[in-house]
Nucleic acid binder design. Structure first.
Lengths: 102, 102
DNA sequence: ATGATAATATCGCCTGACAATATCGGAATA
DNA sequence: TATTCCGATATTGTCAGGCGATATTATCAT
């Protein structure tokens, strides 16, 4: 699997993106990430979510689904701006690294 | 500036990319990164280069330029594979996050 | 109430970020 | 050749984050 030092930033962006589409919980995020080939343990995922919330990029609320409590995350205005900035950077990467060939 | 926890992976990829085009030194890398809006201090850049070398993604050689020693880095076969994997992941990000609009 | 289940939270160790500081090596000067 | 300068690279010390393992929590079924 791709070395973690390369993809952890990608993971953050995937999270912000999904949280911009609809409220999404930790397990659901984990599942989405797995779909993309990112296998994060709870010890990595949850602290990351808490941090993104603390920084003001995500907003959290609780909901009960199938008898279990889930914490749902939605992106904030500030999170949207970060996502937009990140998109700009991704474009630059693409223009440079993927222009020819990829 | 964009939060570091998002972009440090991008920086690595830029480094591998440039090192795949031609031998490039620390200062030159720093300059390239600044061009992209990434301002890394020596305490971040050099240890990162050493680590990428140690992991076998980069190969180092010394050269004297304008009376100063520079360490030039070139990508390795293994580094190329990482870069290729990363490109795949970037594509996924683009398809998902940038598809509509950006 | 109790146990089972699954989602979230935390602990502890280790690695990495980073600003500040040190080192190193060639070139120029004398 | 000793000295000094300069800019590139290296390292140090502190703090934040990654991550596997473990604990906690809240709900439902019995």
């Amino acid at each position: 699997m791709l070395d973690r030092e390369f993809f952890l930033g990608f993971v953050r962006i995937h999270i912000l993106y999904h949280a911009s589409k609809e409220p999404i919980s930790g397990v659901e995020i984990a599942k989405e990430l797995r779909r993309h080939g990112y296998y994060l343990s709870p010890g990595t995922l949850y602290p990351a979510l808490h941090r993104l919330e603390k920084k003001g990029y995500l907003e959290r609320s609780s909901r009960v689904v199938a008898g279990k409590v889930r914490k749902y995350y939605v992106i904030t205005q500030q999170g949207l701006e970060v996502l937009k900035d990140a998109s700009k950077k991704i474009r630059e990467l693409v223009d440079e690294v993927l222009e020819e060939g990829g």
